[in-house]
């Protein structure tokens, strides 16, 4: 059973994330945590678009916030987003990881430690290698991993370095990812 979903994306990620969230069904019962490398001047507008175009409540995660289903939590620009325990999230101003803060690896690793095999991790387009180690950790702790097919990714580097480092369970074109998430979620 899947209890949480983590998504990571960088260059080209705004469109990719929107494409996925907009195609998840109403009453989707699993909380979603996202790290997207995006500037602080663009995030507000982006989140309000997502609020309009999806069934979810979409917001920036707050420090020690207790998460609920039906809500999508984004890492605030300049803070790492971490899964603190089974109920709550936390933020951190640690050093950058992979030249990034927020870093996908930080979210994925901390999520894998808490949710272990009840976690679904999804890595999308990006032009760096953030997220590869995080996906490996998800895999090691028994979670399920989906990586976007580099062929459909706006930037291939991120999915490629993930595929090289670990064995994702699924490598899928962007259009098929929402369907796969829905299928895995009802199992």
């Amino acid at each position: 059973m899947i209890r949480a979903i983590v998504i990571g994306a960088s260059y080209g990620g705004m469109e990719a994330i929107q494409a996925i969230l907009a195609n998840l069904p109403e009453n989707f019962k699993i909380p979603i945590f996202i790290v997207l490398h995006i500037g602080s001047n663009r995030i507000d507008a982006y989140l309000s678009t997502l609020n309009k175009k999806t069934f979810f409540t979409v917001k920036e995660a707050e420090e020690k916030e207790e998460f609920v289903a039906g809500t999508v939590y984004f890492a605030p620009p300049n803070y790492h987003l971490q899964v603190e325990n089974y109920n709550s999230l936390s933020l951190s101003t640690d050093e950058k990881v992979n030249f990034s803060r927020p870093s996908i690896d930080v979210l994925f690793e901390t999520a894998s430690w808490v949710f272990q095999k009840e976690l679904l991790g999804i890595l999308l387009t990006g032009s760096n290698s953030d997220g590869a180690l995080g996906m490996k950790s998800i895999h090691k702790f028994g979670g399920i991993s989906i990586v976007e097919d580099p062929e459909t990714a706006v930037a291939k580097a991120m999915p490629l370095s993930c595929i090289q480092l670990s064995k994702p369970d699924y490598i899928l074109p962007l259009q098929q990812i929402a369907g796969k998430i829905t299928e895995l979620a009802i199992k």
Binding site: Q82, V83, E84, N85, S90, S92, D94, T110, V114
Partner: peptide
């Protein structure tokens, strides 16, 4: 301390 922080 925050568990996520400690673990990292």
């Amino acid at each position: 301390y925050s568990k996520a922080h400690l673990k990292r």
